[in-house]
Every structure is written in structure tokens, then in C-alpha cells.
């Protein structure tokens, strides 16, 4: 039953297409997830009670809800809203891809907002006070001190979340998008071998995840080189 490699090669273009869809989704969700999460994280730490309550509910909702439930709610539920089919918005959401990006981004933002908020709270108070004392405006202080400081603190957790984004994209198979797993499934239907295509797809996912982890490690070293001084010195000596 295990399929021979010659037959398998004819399906490589299909796999490549699926892999491209998976990458596309991962990149888009990384971008939009970040853009949604940052304001929510700021609201989570804000002095306003209402903003905090909103951020807390947002985080609670999207961290507690299964990705599939959010995806289905948007994919099947949105068209039910009266009048939506006449609006301009409809052109955007009538296709599965934007819906998938929106649902996955919201899901990821729930986790990211909590990570960012925690990191922002833990930036050394002295750094912020020093910046303010030197006459930086509140906005400048945020941009040049709080944000980089928080980035240092949350890099590892952020990397883990990015791997979850990659894995989460698999949910799009349930709303007719063909990603890597979808491609593997199509090869199965054509060859009656379910195992080889899935194993190959799994290996590709593994490579993607390792790439993400390596990139995040690199960023971590760039952001806080002093933490890696010992390791670097050891390497230099050896």
C-alpha cells in the first residue's frame, strides 16, 4: 500500500501549493494577530476600568474558545447578519481565506495580548523613570524604552505562540481551503496511501516550526546580547 516514490513525485506540485497556502496563512496571521494584540495589551494595562474589562473579556473569550468554533462562527454565522449581503464588507468575507485569517488572528491575539501585557508590566520601572527624567515624551518613552524592553522579555513566549499559529492554520481544512494537510489528503484520495503523504507533510511542518524557533532565537540574541555573552565567549575560546 505504501506508495512508490515515482508516483509520489507527480504530486509534488500539489504539496508545494499546499505548503505555500500554509506559509501564506502563517505570515498573515502573524501580522494581523500582532496588530490586534498590541492595542488589547495596552488596554489590559490601561488605567481605565472599562478598557481593562474589555481587554480581559477579549482575552478570556479567545483563549477559551476552540479555534474551530470561532472559525465556524465567522464562516457560517456572519452571512446570517441581516443586511450584510448588501454591504461592501460582504465582498471581503464571502471568501474562506479572509475569514480564516480573521478567525486565526483573533485566536492568536487572545494569547498574544496576555503575553504582551505581562511583558509590558514587567519592564524595569527604573528604565521608564529614567527616560521620563531625561525629558522623553510619554509616547517616545513607550516607543523607545517600554516596547523594546517588553520585546526582550516576551521573545521566547512569542516564539512558542508563533509555532501555535503555524499549527493552528490546519483548521482551515474544515472550511474548504487546501493547505499542506489538505494536499496530503488529496494525494491519499488519488493513491489510496494515507500514510506517506501525511508523513511528508508532517516533516515539512517540522521544518517550518524549526525555522520559526531558530528565527526567534536569533532575535532574542540580537535583542539582549549580554545574556548570551558567556556562551559567546565560550564559543570564541573553543
Amino acid at each position: 500500500m505504501i506508495l512508490d516514490w515515482e508516483t509520489f513525485l507527480t504530486f509534488v506540485p500539489l504539496l508545494v501549493q499546499g505548503a505555500v497556502t500554509t506559509i501564506e496563512l502563517t505570515v498573515l496571521v502573524t501580522i494581523f494577530g500582532f496588530l490586534i494584540a498590541l492595542p488589547v495589551a495596552l488596554a489590559r494595562n490601561s488605567a481605565s476600568r472599562a478598557a481593562r474589562a474589555f481587554a480581559r473579556s477579549f482575552i478570556f473569550f479567545f483563549r477559551g474558545a476552540p479555534i474551530l468554533a470561532v472559525l465556524f462562527l465567522l464562516y457560517y454565522g456572519l452571512p446570517q447578519i441581516p443586511g450584510i449581503k448588501d454591504s461592501i464588507l460582504w465582498h471581503l468575507i464571502a471568501r474562506p481565506m479572509p475569514i480564516a485569517v480573521l478567525a486565526l488572528s483573533l485566536n492568536s491575539a487572545g494569547f498574544l495580548a496576555e503575553i504582551f501585557a505581562l511583558a509590558l508590566r514587567n519592564v524595569a520601572v527604573g528604565d521608564i523613570e529614567a527616560a521620563r527624567a531625561f525629558g522623553f515624551s510619554r509616547f517616545q518613552t513607550f516607543l523607545r524604552f517600554a516596547l523594546p524592553g517588553a520585546a526582550r522579555l516576551c521573545m521566547r513566549a512569542y516564539g512558542n505562540e508563533l509555532v501555535f499559529v503555524l499549527k493552528g492554520t490546519a483548521a482551515v481544512n474544515f472550511i474548504t481551503i487546501t493547505d499542506l494537510i489538505g494536499a496530503a489528503n488529496q494525494i491519499y484520495f488519488n493513491t489510496f496511501d494515507p500514510i506517506t503523504p501525511l508523513l511528508v507533510a508532517g516533516a515539512i511542518y517540522l521544518v517550518f516550526a524549526l525555522l520559526i524557533v531558530t528565527a526567534v532565537r536569533y532575535m532574542e540574541r540580537r535583542l539582549s546580547p549580554w545574556l548570551f555573552l558567556k556562551a559567546a565567549l565560550k564559543e570564541a575560546k573553543a
Binding site: 509555532v163 499549527k167 493552528g168 494537510i181 517540522l206 516550526a209 524549526l210
Partner: peptide, 18 residues
């Protein structure tokens, strides 16, 4: 490392068929 990098759906399908 492998189990934490591969989508859950893939593991489910692989075990079910496999």
C-alpha cells in the same frame, strides 16, 4: 519537538489511518 511542531489534525489523521 516533533509532537509540538506538527498540527494536531495531522497527528489525528495519521493515527486513525496509520
Amino acid at each position: 519537538v516533533v509532537m509540538r511542531s506538527v498540527p494536531e489534525l495531522l497527528v489525528i489523521l495519521l493515527l486513525y489511518y496509520g
